[in-house]
Nucleic acid binder design. Structure first.
Length: 215
DNA sequence: CTCCCGATAT
DNA sequence: ATATCAGGAG
């Protein structure tokens, strides 16, 4: 079977985006937060953890640590206990405290607005940086590729890559920039509902006709 | 590449 | 018992 041409992938991508928009209108992050810095903390906590669990931890966390300064001054062991149930608590505690310190020492207490500056913050990688840019300011420098976006991009035939950066590069060729932010939100919602890692429900999926993995 | 790591579904 | 969840650092 011949490999699908890029032009055909782009057309299929448009059709898929259209259907996703219809089924997931107003898709947005499900990470609860009030400020951009809180979004940053919640996103750091979301690594290898469900958003649902992050949202159980953050309300009391943000009630206790009310400012960037408060996180910067936090006792590491105590902070680790406060976020314990999200997993990776020791490394996440370091990331949260040290990134807060970096914001105060190098960015005047503001969260920077470029991928380059964000990814230099301790504990903030490319995916976390893109989440912040997209959700806080609607900036699409890149595409958020998390476990869901990677999996669905492969199932939908947009890429064969496993490395998130390579997946992102393939998506950027196929999807128009104006759709980058919404695409990730919608693929994540779709991944949680109909297209999870284990038992995708192709029978009831509205994308099945456009999906090469559908059975 | 390995390590960090708890909660949940299967 | 095992796979999976809005990853990042060494």
């Amino acid at each position: 079977m011949a490999r699908e041409k890029l032009d055909d992938k782009i057309k299929r991508g448009k059709a898929i985006i259209r259907l996703l928009r219809k089924h997931y209108p107003g898709a947005r992050t499900s990470l609860s937060h009030e400020t951009v810095h809180q979004l940053m903390v919640a996103t750091i906590l979301s690594a290898q953890c469900t958003d649902e669990r992050v949202n159980m931890v953050t309300p009391p966390l943000f009630a206790k640590y009310r400012s960037i300064e408060s996180f910067a001054d936090a006792d590491l062991d105590e902070l680790a206990r406060d976020i314990f149930t999200t997993g990776f608590h020791n490394s996440k505690a370091k990331s949260i405290r040290n990134s807060a310190r970096a914001l105060l020492e190098q960015h005047g207490g503001e969260v920077p607005r470029t991928l380059d500056e964000l990814t230099k913050l301790p504990g903030v990688g490319r995916k976390t940086a893109s989440v912040i840019l997209g959700n806080a300011w609607g900036i699409a420098e890149g595409i958020v590729v998390d476990t869901h976006v990677g999996r669905l991009s492969r199932r939908l035939g947009f890429t064969t890559e496993k490395n998130p950066i390579k997946v992102e590069q393939d998506l950027m060729k196929i999807i128009p920039r104006k759709d980058w932010i919404d695409l990730s939100h919608m693929l994540i919602l779709h991944g949680r509902s109909l297209c999870p890692a284990r038992r995708p429900d192709c029978a009831s999926c509205f994308l099945s006709k456009l999906c090469p993995s559908s059975r």
